[in-house]
Simulated scan of single mutants.
Amino acid sequence: MALLVLGLLIWVGAHIFKRVAPEQRAAMGDTGKLIVTVALVISIGLMIWGYRGAAFIHVWSPPSFMVHINNLLMLVALFVFGMSATTGRLRGKMRHPQLVSVKIWAVAHLLVNGDLASIILFGGLLAWAVLEVIIINRAEPVWNRPQPGEAKKDVLLVVITLVSFVVIAAIHAWLGVWPFPG
């Protein structure tokens, strides 16, 4: 559990460092980018290692129908995440699509996982995403909304979302976590 918490703390620190100390971060130049990247990779490794190695401590039992809600929310999360890269009509509909996606992803996983390690991991990342949006919005209150592009790019986003969902479901199955009710 300690590795999981350490990974979360490094993740939050590496992301928020740029926001709370922008001058110091800018002064570090490319070296700073490398340090943050290495810290994020280490944090992901620690979160995975800590989560997989954590003892199962039961907190609550999610009802079985939550799996359906989780899967629907995961499709939405992937779609919203993709909105950050789309050049279609949906571009600019949401200010923080990646962070909103993390929030949806975290809530979806909290709905189907009732153990302490899951609550720490997904709840911690949910709290980070909320905090990050607040910090960004305070630092940059004005948002210049990008102009929408072509609708056919949104169709591509739907296709990429569906393919991504299948790949992620396959990875979960490969790891021994069957993501569909049976």
Results as ranks from 00 to 15, higher is better:
residue 96 H to R: 15
residue 129 A to D: 04
residue 120 I to H: 01
residue 104 I to S: 04
residue 106 A to K: 00
residue 86 T to M: 02
residue 156 L to Q: 14
residue 98 Q to W: 12
residue 137 N to G: 08
residue 58 H to C: 08
residue 29 G to Y: 09
residue 88 G to D: 04
residue 23 E to K: 13
residue 105 W to P: 00
residue 64 S to W: 07
residue 13 G to M: 02
residue 165 F to W: 06
residue 51 Y to C: 06
residue 132 E to R: 03
residue 8 L to T: 03
residue 10 I to E: 01
residue 128 W to I: 07
residue 133 V to E: 13
residue 144 N to A: 13
residue 144 N to G: 11
residue 174 W to M: 09
residue 100 V to A: 14
residue 143 W to C: 04
residue 97 P to I: 01
residue 107 V to R: 01
residue 19 R to C: 08
residue 97 P to W: 01
residue 175 L to S: 07
residue 6 L to E: 02
residue 171 I to L: 11
residue 124 G to M: 03
residue 152 K to L: 14
residue 12 V to K: 00
residue 25 R to D: 09
residue 81 F to G: 07
residue 67 V to E: 07
residue 93 K to Y: 14
residue 30 D to W: 13
residue 41 V to F: 12
residue 178 W to F: 15
residue 116 L to D: 04
residue 68 H to A: 13
residue 173 A to M: 15
residue 126 L to H: 06
residue 107 V to P: 00
residue 142 V to T: 10
residue 167 V to I: 12
residue 89 R to C: 07
residue 24 Q to E: 10
residue 181 P to N: 08
residue 133 V to Q: 15
residue 76 V to F: 09
residue 38 V to T: 10
residue 155 V to G: 13
residue 153 K to V: 11
residue 107 V to M: 02
residue 147 Q to N: 13
residue 172 H to K: 09
residue 150 E to H: 11
residue 65 F to Q: 00
residue 74 M to H: 08
residue 19 R to K: 14
residue 28 M to K: 05
residue 174 W to Q: 07
residue 134 I to Q: 11
residue 114 G to M: 00
residue 12 V to N: 02
residue 180 F to D: 10
